[in-house]
Amino acid sequence: MQFDVAVILDNWQPLADGFARTIGICTVSLPIGFILGVALALLRLHGGLVFATFAAAYVELLRNIPFLTQVFLLYFVLPEFGLRLSPLVVGFIALSAYASAYAAEIVRGAILSVPAGQTEAGYALGLGYATILRRILLPQVLGYILPTSTNLAIGLIKESAVLSVITVPELTYEAQDIIGRTFSPVEIFTIIALLYWGLTALVSTLTKWLEIHLQPYLTARRTG
């Protein structure tokens, strides 16, 4: 058995395309999921009984069903209701929805992690909830949100491989396509594993850097 680098070099174009699509899908889904997640978290915390229950049900449903099963549900069931979407669009929707459920829990946990006294001090100063949220709670929860969203981002990158099953032409799909033509699973799976590995490593290094630079007050030492 030998490792044939030529297979990789010959197929670099579809590999690069697939890799770019993987990055693209995640780059779009993560912020969409996060915006939805913030909304869901606020609904669950302050939305009153009806909206809070709805948000909780949405979050629990998505968190307790495997992503692959959700993807199949969307891909095969939506057409039954007359909604024919391309695999790529289904992939975007599935990944964003999935991200939103996890982001909602991250944001909710983050807001709950700030001591109640912070909100009370804001109220006592006459600030409204919107201002308290924007100026007091959110800046403080960055330290909580950043590391957990790194995990979410990495989770999404890895989960996006599942979209290959419904023929979204991302990295894993392209890899299987190449293997189908070249019968060289060892080389191709090795290279895509390395690509995923590199990408997730890059994301976690990047956010660690951000974590340090966005919160100077956490590293400021007491000088007396």
């Binding site: 001591p115 006294g117 912070q118 009370e120 001090a121 006592a124 800046p139 403080q140 919160q215 007050y217």
Partner: peptide, 13 residues
């Protein structure tokens, strides 16, 4: 009304 708390509740950031 101004209020002062037991745990100060200054905004740490």
């Amino acid at each position: 009304i101004g209020m002062v708390f037991q745990n100060f509740n200054l905004f740490p950031h």
